[in-house]
Design a protein around this nucleic acid. Structure first.
Lengths: 268, 268
DNA sequence: GAGTGGTCTAGACCACTTT
DNA sequence: AAGTGGTCTAGACCACTCT
């Protein structure tokens, strides 16, 4: 079996493998279909399992595959577009937002959050856990940090781990005027708790969105959201010059919510 | 039952290793310092090199380390914050933007770009290559796709691979009115050409930002930018609630351009 | 219990950079 | 030439999900 071509360019095997597999996915497999298992695939391509896995890992990173221990490897559907930056700026927990409020707690924030909030590290804040669902699947987890100063009306009674308390924090937060917000997006890997929440293994790649909510010139709250990087495509509707039409379902420019906007990573 | 449940959780070695290394980085190493080589580290921790590498890979993914073949592994500086979504919406190539215009070409766009542009796949468009530099390092590469319809004034003379032509395309583009834009962010892996441009190996993780520029209700141009995920933190200055005051320079909330907002991935 | 992906080992050689 | 990280192998065992 002369392996055809390309001895001139010492392309790594796993890289070439990835290309071959990628093509095969486009032409021979349907979404949701299960691939042959790793040992079989490795044998079929004449490589060690570790090499085969290196290719699969990349394809999973690109959202083309989904692997689950004990089950198998399946062809992933195109990534969801999850809206992160809607033109109308609202506090977290607004009636229309896609998050489910979870437990609330009261702890010292991590240093980088304390820095964003402009307060000392040893000062406790409210922490509200939230989850974002799409198509019945959890796509993101969030920790919302709210300093006591932002929700002065909240009684101190501490029924920790209570979802009712989480809702109370959000309700109090809404009394403030929202003066703007700022976001950053970076790559991270899922901590153990995030991973569990997202139905992934620890270390899975996530997109970390950090949002600072401003009120009266100060940071009133900080949200750290971790989105599954394999299944999500974050969308920002910066957009639109026309008069704001809140409530109306995305009167955004047409032609982009297409049938299946093929990922840039698929075959052209 | 009677025994403590501590060993009930078999944490993977590489995961534990990563934690140990992460702590060591914070306490014993300075930015830029080189670590012992992989064989030595593996021996020191009593694991196989592959296992050690699994931990290093994660730390690199999180932007904590930087590895270069033939050189060694160094402690990475905190991620840059690169502004992606400024409040003032401008065409690419505006005088203040951070991009260097490169070669221009004329080819068929990939299918997903054609879809965004709302035109057939076999129809050629202008393609302008651009590079974004920060601190003397390339942090992003971009392909800007401009349909002929958007730049009717451009002569057809094709001196392909010319940077002057790239600038001409941008200049013509600026004649249009910009009516809004839309962005998506997703995780990808660097193609061979991107990798070369970003001084990384193919397959390196990148943040892919896709921007659709709208003019008169249609998509006038599409930019696909790939940022180094290991070194970049994308920032979006969504911000600002006050009545829209175009032209006025972002009266954005202060206190957020801090000295060095520690990454969420560093020790708390 | 059978089958899957996840972890781990102990080697080997290659591609690259520096000396 | 020496030293680094990058690729690859051929095994082994573990954790998990199904039936």
């Amino acid at each position: 079996m002369s392996t055809t071509e390309l001895d001139a360019v010492p392309e790594p095997k796993y890289w070439h493998l990835k290309t071959v597999l990628s093509d095969a996915l486009d032409s021979e497999f349907a979404v949701g279909e299960i691939l042959p298992n790793e040992r079989e695939l490795a044998a079929r391509f004449g490589v060690a399992r570790a090499t085969l896995r290196q290719a699969l890992e990349q394809l999973e990173l690109e959202g083309r595959l989904q692997r689950r221990r004990g089950v198998g490897t399946t062809v992933a559907p195109p990534r969801f577009g999850v809206e992160v930056g809607s033109p109308e700026q609202t506090w977290p927990g607004s009636p229309d937002d896609a998050w489910q409020t979870g437990e609330s707690d009261e702890t010292k924030p991590p240093t980088y959050v304390a820095a964003l909030l402009g307060q000392d590290t040893d000062q406790k804040v409210h922490v509200v856990r939230r989850t974002r669902m799409t198509h019945g699947q959890p796509v993101a987890g969030e920790l919302l940090y709210v300093p006591h100063a932002s929700v002065p009306g909240l009684p101190d009674a501490d029924t920790s781990g209570d979802t009712a308390r989480g809702r109370a924090v959000l309700r109090e937060l809404h009394r403030l005027e929202l003066n703007g917000l700022e976001r950053t997006v970076e790559l991270g890997s899922a901590r153990a708790d995030d991973a569990r929440q997202l139905d992934r293994l620890p270390g899975a790649p996530v997109l970390v969105v950090t949002t600072s909510y401003y009120s009266q010139g100060a940071v009133a709250a900080v949200a750290v959201s971790t989105y599954r990087a394999d299944t999500c495509r974050l969308t920002f509707g910066d957009s639109r010059p026309e008069p704001v039409m809140p409530g109306t379902d995305a009167a955004a420019p047409a032609a982009h919510r297409r049938h299946r906007p093929a990922s840039r990573l698929s075959r052209v």
